[in-house]
Amino acid sequence: MSKTYNLLVGLHFLVCTLAMIWPGALIANRIEPTVLGIPFFMAWYILWMCLLFVGTWIAYNVRHGGNRDE
């Protein structure tokens, strides 16, 4: 469980990082379509900020949720 868990969390971090740097961010480097009026490239960064939050929050709850300790 622990090994799979660490692997998945690491993968999550890797994907979030790659999305924000070269080459991941290349695919988002455009203005259209805008998202709620925000250019696509900026919206991309906000999206990954949110995904990092959601993924890490899930990881936290799987491992430390409820009364479980470290």
Binding site: L52, F53, T56, Y60, R63
Partner: peptide
């Protein structure tokens, strides 16, 4: 860990 989860 919790702080890093809510940090964003």
């Amino acid at each position: 860990r919790r702080v890093s989860a809510i940090y964003p």
